[in-house]
């Protein structure tokens, strides 16, 4: 069965968000309808203020829609923040941070299970030998790996990521992109990743959703049909890739 035909892991029906400020109502996200299939890798792009983070926060239950409904299973959904340094617990070591994820995960792990979950999660993100360090002793890229390992330790079926790689340097970002693509194909979970980086959006996703400026809703919904595994060098040099890139850039810049 094609991924797109599977049942929805996340769905929004007429879901929108309006904030009330002193100067009146501000529509952060116009009501939109969207369904994300189980096991898909979806990226959401758009300019600043288009509401892409708001949409992700609606799915995470971090904010409630002011119109419509959002369907997501919070028990099996975990979230990776852009600001890893404010999200990791500075008083805990890397291992303890990841154990936090295992303990606060879906289902009750047996005691032996927690240690296994911690070890496996760290292996998924390619971290070894730093278990006893504190997050603030690590580079930004490694800290974000810890945050992703912590989310994975909770055994989620849906992973929401809000610009997870915007705060790390370009080289680390390429490594992190390859890492998350590997995790996705290994675990078969649903990943929704918000980014302002068109290349990142194409390289990772089956489907790129372009949000219109100023929270006006969905501008385009593009399926990305590129073979996997994709690589930073070869994939990004193919004609198909460059075609998607031109199409999406035009959509975002318009």
């Amino acid at each position: 069965m094609k991924i797109a035909d599977r049942p929805a892991a996340l769905a929004a029906a007429g879901a929108g968000k309006t904030f009330w400020s002193r100067s009146g109502a501000v529509e952060a996200l116009a009501p939109l309808t969207l369904s994300i299939a189980e096991g898909s890798f979806v990226t959401i792009v758009g300019r600043s203020g288009c509401g892409k983070s708001t949409l992700l926060r609606l799915f995470a239950g971090l904010t409630a829609p002011t119109s419509g409904v959002v369907r997501a299973d919070g028990d099996v959904t975990r979230y990776v923040f852009q600001d890893y340094s404010q999200s990791l617990l500075p008083w805990q070591t890397v291992e303890q941070n990841v154990r936090f994820g295992a303990v606060h995960g879906s289902g009750e792990p047996a005691h032996g299970d927690t240690a296994t979950a911690v070890r496996e999660s760290l292996a998924y993100v390619g971290l070894t030998g730093v278990e006893l360090r504190y997050p603030w002793e690590l580079s930004g890229g490694m800290q974000q790996r810890v945050a992703i390992a912590r989310a994975l330790a909770a055994r989620p079926t849906v992973l929401l990521m809000d610009e997870p790689f915007s705060s790390v340097d370009a080289l680390s970002r390429a490594h992190l992109q390859d890492m998350i693509a590997g995790v996705w194909s290994k675990l078969g979970i649903t990943i929704v990743l918000v980014t302002h980086d068109i290349d990142e959006a194409i390289l990772l996703a089956d489907r790129v959703i372009v949000l219109a400026p100023a929270g006006a809703g969905i501008a385009a919904d593009v399926s990305i049909d590129l073979p996997r595994p994709r690589t930073q060098l070869e994939t990004r040099a193919t004609d198909a890739y460059l075609g998607y890139r031109a199409e999406l850039l035009r959509l975002v810049l318009d």
Partner: peptide, 26 residues
């Protein structure tokens, strides 16, 4: 930090777990 508060929400901590595991050490 708001992100730390949101982290507690996304890991579905109860009120008491949030106090004990996030608020007090922070």
């Amino acid at each position: 930090p708001p992100t730390l508060r949101a982290t507690a929400v996304t890991f579905r901590l109860t009120w008491w777990q949030t106090i004990r595991e996030i608020v007090v050490p922070a």
